[in-house]
Nucleic acid binder design. Structure first.
Length: 565
RNA sequence: GGCCCCAUCGUCUAGAGGCCUAGGACAUCGGAUUUUCAGUCCGAGAACAGGGGUUCGACUCCCCUUGGGGUCACCA
């Protein structure tokens, strides 16, 4: 009966943002504001990389805080990490900064509830354990692991749910003292009230309840004195005054214990919002870093892995093994825009209406709400992400594109020849922006992510170092006996072309085709290969102009010289 | 297996009992533009898991079945 306390009385506050209990007469924001300012948190472990799914959870937490004018807190779950926390955290902070998810309290930021590292908050957990012990809401358990395992087996054999034996509960104070003095290991367990239920009104899942009679007593403190995640989280969330716990659905089951803990600690539980997780493309299983090899074979991810193997080595960043598509850093290093990633992530499990797909960061802040998060899991879709990305790329000015591409050109050592004297500057020098701008203009929408600029490397390499695409070369040059003669004549034609600009060139080439009674493609294709090594690419006449007359002629001659007499 | 969650085009989703002949986006396939590719424009195919109720009426509410998933630690 007790459990009623958790529910109706708190319903208004607990169900903030939940459409099921939403009273249309009261705006949601008002509802939240009437209770207390929203505080959300994201609590990453120092794993050495930022997972794309975790990033989406963090985004939702951040958006809810920003939308409600509340605060977003970063707390580090480093309870079982030893050293190198700093270096394992760096990529995580980097991901947050890259996407522009700033935190109001946390590492490097401080705040009223410092420290924000769980490893430094042990005194709080200790105090909470003692409080619970003193109140008889938790107990010291001397049961050995062997006994517990045996009980478990027994329960399984009898096909009844396993429950803690609670044998230690019948120990007298004297016996306990003896046990402790003799160094008998013990843990602290919460005394679960078995005669009732716990329930929450989840902001996305609605009413969920569990029967306490089916729950073993959870360990709060290990025999070595350290604390369990479930317990530390509750103590922290309560102490940090978190109002909305927004986290992945896998934590839903944990919530039963956590709510019990809030009650035992005489704290009112926050609103929970268990968001659906992201699954691997074409799968219903959680997208995880595990089974990288399996993910590599996933048809929906293969393109991303393959692209990594093409791009990252050129940037001296390893390959798809070092940076895989489940890591946020993959997208950063690949030259995605924060706007593209944010847009894509936000639309996984959340939508505004029946037609809006494009959201800027500010749009998201304005429109985001817990009530429009849906319940079923969402598959990661690399194609759709790329289409968001392409959209945001198309919104950039030419200068922004130049600045975005520059680091890639630099890292790939494509512009080294421009600076024979030494150091390559951090940003593209003024006297090179004109040409690069023309290149980018001609390249157009083919630039979807900044690293796509590497596909224009034919424009940067030496004329004699050009690599010809094998298939195209065979088909259009080797197997076309007239190709050589055409190219020879064309070389003479182009050498005479003045001015060397697109309209003039186009006119000259058309005239060339006509007077010789050729088909346009017979001329165009071999020319393309001579200039760029490929048959696909940007406009041919732009290509000619970009390369300039000298380099065009030099490339033509180079190709002709390779052909048999 | 126990407990819990979920179920609309291939994918992300809209749908709050009649606005549904189920809408949009990505992807796919046509067509147009064009020197290739990309883009752009136009168009096409493509879904309510099944069965029972409730109701004048069910994608929508209830129940069951089926399917999928999560979780059951002195992990986080």
């Amino acid at each position: 009966m007790d459990y009623n306390l958790v529910l109706p009385s708190h319903r208004g506050a607990l169900s903030t943002g939940c459409r099921r209990f939403w009273n249309p007469a009261i705006p949601i924001e008002m509802n939240a504001a009437m209770t207390r300012p929203v505080r959300t948190r994201f609590a990453p472990s120092p794993t050495g990389y930022m997972h794309i799914g975790g990033m989406r959870t963090a985004l939702f937490c951040w958006l809810w805080a920003r939308h409600t004018n509340g605060r977003f807190i970063l707390r580090i779950d480093d309870t079982d990490q030893e050293r190198n926390v700093e270096s394992a955290l760096a990529p995580i902070f980097r991901a947050f900064r890259w996407l522009g998810l700033d935190w109001d309290e946390g590492p490097e930021q401080g705040g009223p509830y410092t420290p924000y590292y769980q490893s430094q908050r042990g005194h709080l957990y200790q105090a909470a354990v003692e409080k619970l012990l003193a109140a008889g809401k938790a107990y010291r358990d001397f049961e050995t692991p062997e006994q517990i395992a045996a009980d478990r087996q027994q329960a399984e054999a009898n096909k009844v749910p396993y429950l803690s034996s609670r044998r230690s509960l019948s120990l007298t104070p004297d016996q306990i003292a003896v046990h402790q003095q003799s160094g008998q290991p013990s843990v602290v367990r919460l005394l679960v009230p078995r005669d009732r239920k716990v329930a929450i009104d989840d902001a996305v899942r609605g009413h969920v309840e569990w029967d306490c009679g089916l729950m073993p007593d959870p360990v709060l403190q290990r025999s070595n004195g350290s604390f369990l995640y479930n317990f530390a989280t509750v103590v922290d969330d309560a102490q940090l005054q978190i109002t909305h716990v927004i986290r992945a659905e896998e934590h839903l089951t944990n919530t039963a214990v956590q709510v019990l803990l809030y009650e035992a600690l005489e704290q009112s539980p926050p609103t929970f919002a268990h968001i659906p997780f992201i699954t691997a493309p074409g799968s219903t299983k959680k997208l995880s870093k595990r089974d990288l090899e399996k993910l590599r074979k996933n048809p929906g991810l293969q393109k991303l892995f393959d692209r990594a193997d093409v791009v990252f080595p050129q940037l001296s960043l390893g390959d798809s093994t070092t940076l895989s598509p489940v890591m946020v850093e993959y997208y950063e290093q690949m030259g995605y825009l924060p706007a593209g990633v944010l847009n894509g992530l936000a639309r996984l499990g959340w939508s505004l209406d029946d037609k809006t797909e494009i959201f800027s960061r500010d749009d998201l802040i304005r429109e985001f709400s817990l009530e429009r998060i849906n319940k079923s899991s969402a598959a990661f879709d690399a194609d759709k992400l790329l289409s968001f990305q392409a959209h945001w790329m198309s919104q950039l000015s030419l200068d922004e594109k130049i600045d975005g591409c520059w680091p890639f050109l630099k890292r790939a050592k494509l512009v080294q020849d421009w600076f024979p004297a030494g150091e390559i500057p951090e940003s593209c020098p003024v006297d090179r922006r004109g040409w690069l701008g023309e290149l980018l203009t001609a390249f157009g929408d083919r630039l979807k992510v900044f690293s796509d600029i590497l596909d224009t490397q034919d424009f940067f390499v030496a004329d004699t170092a050009l690599v010809y695409e094998e298939k195209a070369y065979q088909k259009k040059i080797v197997e076309a006996p007239e190709a050589k003669e055409i190219l020879q004549a064309l070389t003479i034609e182009l050498a005479a072309c003045q001015p060397f600009d697109a309209p003039t060139l186009e006119q000259r080439v058309h005239a060339f085709v006509e007077t010789r009674g050729l088909k346009f493609n017979q001329v165009i294709q071999p020319l393309r290969i001579a200039l760029t090594g490929k048959t696909a690419g940007m406009g041919l006449f732009e290509t000619l102009v970009l390369l300039g007359q000298d380099r065009c002629l030099s490339r033509l001659r180079h190709l002709i010289s390779r052909l048999p007499v």
